[in-house]
Design a binder for these strands. Sequence first.
DNA 1: CATTGTGAACTCATTCACAGCG
DNA 2: CGCTGTGAATGAGTTCACAATG
Lengths: 213, 213
Amino acid sequence: MIKTKKIPKATITRLSMYYRQLELLEFDGYRMVSSEKLAWLCQINPAQVRKDLGYFGEFGVRGVGYDVIDLQAQIKKILSLNRDWNFGIAGMGNMGCAIFLHRDLALRGFKCVAAFDNALDRIGMPLPGGMRIRDIRELKTAIRDLNIEIGVITTPASEAQGVADLFMEGHVNAILNFAPARINAPDCCLVENMDFTITMDVLTYQLRQKIAA
Amino acid sequence: MIKTKKIPKATITRLSMYYRQLELLEFDGYRMVSSEKLAWLCQINPAQVRKDLGYFGEFGVRGVGYDVIDLQAQIKKILSLNRDWNFGIAGMGNMGCAIFLHRDLALRGFKCVAAFDNALDRIGMPLPGGMRIRDIRELKTAIRDLNIEIGVITTPASEAQGVADLFMEGHVNAILNFAPARINAPDCCLVENMDFTITMDVLTYQLRQKIAA
DNA sequence: CATTGTGAACTCATTCACAGCG
DNA sequence: CGCTGTGAATGAGTTCACAATG
């Protein structure tokens, strides 16, 4: 073992948040920022900010703070935001189209290079930008030909596992799953779930607690 | 203090997951399920399942397991899934429409009772089901008239805070925010963020770690 | 002298291990 | 005998507190 001291996933999430705030700070003309200010913007504790950054190096100047531009560059490198990533979408319903058309993803270097569905009336349909919806059966070859590195699942829950399996057969080992279903995958494949039906349940639970109190 | 022993938010999230698995188990004809099986389905530790349920009561039968139907009913009550919740959407772009049309939400008792935008070419536009997109300036009165309890934000990042403020002025105190922006809100208002640009960053970070290894 | 960087203390969550019970 | 329920042990993540320093 060389030195990896186990970085919490939450730290990575926050790094991404810091980056967005730094973009805004730069836009607003700030040159330096303290851990206190950055923490306030992200609604967390200043020590947390310093500890998170501390995992990757010493980026600040004591008594002064962090250089807004420089810290952006550092985080960019850590999160490898300085390169593009190709992704493919399976399931071109409303959610699939919404992801396909989402500005913020393209803006951040996430390029949708292919969109798939299994419905005959969708296959072949043109998409903005000149692409067409492909038959899900082309998934495996498309992964190779178009160098798809990330699979986005926006199918109904019942189809999610099957589609995930197709992605994995094509050796995609990062999946973002929007379907309200748990994906079974070996350790070699990363899965992140974005199930807002669960989030809604959590929200209403908390809401009722608050009402009761 | 009566007895509330601080239930982790993660427990609530898992309860929601258990519920989905129980629905599937019932559908597949299972009558009983062990913590081990339920844990396996959710890809977690069996002790976790038992501890989570233990916060709310004793729902199992020792030596046997949990009654699939009964446990569903218990969780339903805990998460107050046995009532409907009204929500309103602000920002009827692709993502807003996707949420509006999402089957799984309606299926789980989350009813969209109003949709808002500030773009003149969208206001008044008919939506499936007979509703029309309202002017965002009607938000406050609509909250009262239609009893909106949850605000869903699907605007661009730059608009998110403003819209959140409108919801809060109308005394909505639960917000689900899809915009890649941090919402500032007092403690009385719950905010859950679903920022998949952040999730993408986390995914690619992990992916690169894996590639490097 | 204001602010970083970081070990130590603390808080919170998960897992173990086994007593309790049907 | 098998599986639940739970206190105790472990582990992870956050916050504190202060020494280090530009």
